[in-house]
Write a protein that binds this DNA or RNA. Structure first.
Lengths: 96, 96
DNA sequence: TGAATATATGAACAAGTATTCATATATTAA
DNA sequence: TTAATATATGAATACTTGTTCATATATTCA
């Protein structure tokens, strides 16, 4: 298969978004529905700042979506590609 | 979803294997069937050394498989998880 | 055996990245 | 307006990573 360099870079960036354990855990949490930044941070024992920085990257790659309500921002998975990538990846690591 | 830290790390490592444009291009080439290290390197304009280093990581994550024949080593995708992850990722970047 | 070829690997350097800390913005309540 | 709360962001630092270069291992051929 011949792959345009641009596509290769975009794909790499997408997978790069999933290449960190903190982000994976954030995504795993969001599988259960939307959560505020603080709730995510509390659930994972991370600072809000660290979570916010990570969410920014996930947002830019359209893996999560933000919904503002009052002074809170609720994050959720953007579409089912994310959950499917996650499930497929889990499948791969479970049984080699 | 609650995810064991070990699984999170394993998942992150898996996606990390796919988080580089060179590795993505290597995998894209292997979609067409097995290839020697030199053939991959020539096809991508990379040095054999760089390709070999990358293949090592892909091998460790069981994304590619090596078959030795004479003094050449032919690489191929390890199982269809790889192609499916690839296709799903491509799908995501194509139409947001 | 020795020369040539194919791949692998260790070390080193450059470039990228995750976290922390301090600060900024935005919203609500008093 | 002021204080408090929720999130975002810039800078700095520590850590990781991809490539190159030199060298090593393995295989074939003469």
């Amino acid at each position: 298969m011949k792959l345009a360099e641009l596509k290769a870079i975009q794909l790499a960036e997408l997978f790069s978004s999933l290449s960190d354990a903190s982000r994976i855990r954030i995504i795993a949490q969001l599988m259960g529905g939307e959560m505020s930044v603080r709730a995510i941070a509390d659930g994972l024992g991370m600072t809000e700042s660290a979570v916010s920085h990570q969410l920014r990257g996930l947002r830019q790659m359209r893996l999560v979506r933000a919904r503002k309500s009052g002074r809170q921002v609720f994050y959720s998975l953007d579409d089912d590609h994310v959950a499917r990538l996650f499930a497929l990846g889990l499948d791969h690591v479970q049984h080699g």
